[in-house]
């Protein structure tokens, strides 16, 4: 029981602090887990690798991995619920007011300033991903074709699945 509670509390803290992306939390997460003697440094390095190779947000994947390793399936459930709890509480409170006042003059004029900056934020994320993943002609071709297909309204899930299968066959 105490291990489950500890996992829940640790990952609730991590979930709360995940401001602006899970990867930003990584050093803090590593320090908490190793300082408490829950994981070795090598295990946290494996945790990062696995979290990036599996679907889903980094923080949630890392929580499931750590929980599973330390206390099995129940540990995984405790850590994953822990990392999600701050989001549950905060968005449940905020969404009520956000959608209620969205049409109000004040909120809609704030949104008129926020909407144009969001594409800039996404473009910067594309830039970061591209710099890390587009290393040769093959990966550039995959990225450009994926972009064209999604503009033509092909479902991105199929694009990603196909790119993964092609990668396994051709890039391995």
């Amino acid at each position: 029981m105490s291990v489950l509670l500890e996992l829940f509390i640790i990952f609730a803290q991590i979930g709360f602090l995940t401001f602006g992306g899970g990867m930003a939390m990584l050093p803090v997460m590593q320090r908490i887990l190793t300082d408490r003697g829950l994981m070795t440094l090598q295990e946290t390095i494996d945790m990062v690798a696995i979290s990036q190779m599996t679907p889903g947000p980094f923080a949630v994947n890392a929580a499931t991995f750590a929980g599973m390793k330390l206390a099995g399936v129940w540990g995984a459930a405790a850590a994953t619920l822990g990392v999600m709890t701050p989001s549950f509480v905060i968005t449940a409170l905020v969404s009520h007011y956000f959608f209620k006042f969205k049409e109000s003059a004040l909120v809609s004029s704030a949104l008129s300033g926020i909407r144009p900056v969001v594409p800039a934020l996404i473009l910067a994320a594309v830039w970061g991903m591209g710099a890390a993943s587009l290393t040769d002609a093959w990966t550039w071709a995959v990225a450009l074709i994926s972009c064209g297909l999604v503009i033509k309204k092909v479902n991105p899930a199929w694009v990603i699945l196909t790119a993964g299968l092609l990668g396994a066959l051709l890039l391995s």
Partner: peptide, 16 residues
Amino acid sequence: GAMAGVRAAVAGTLAA
């Protein structure tokens, strides 16, 4: 290999 393909595709779909 699959992840190399997936990462490139994610960048492309996000650009779209």
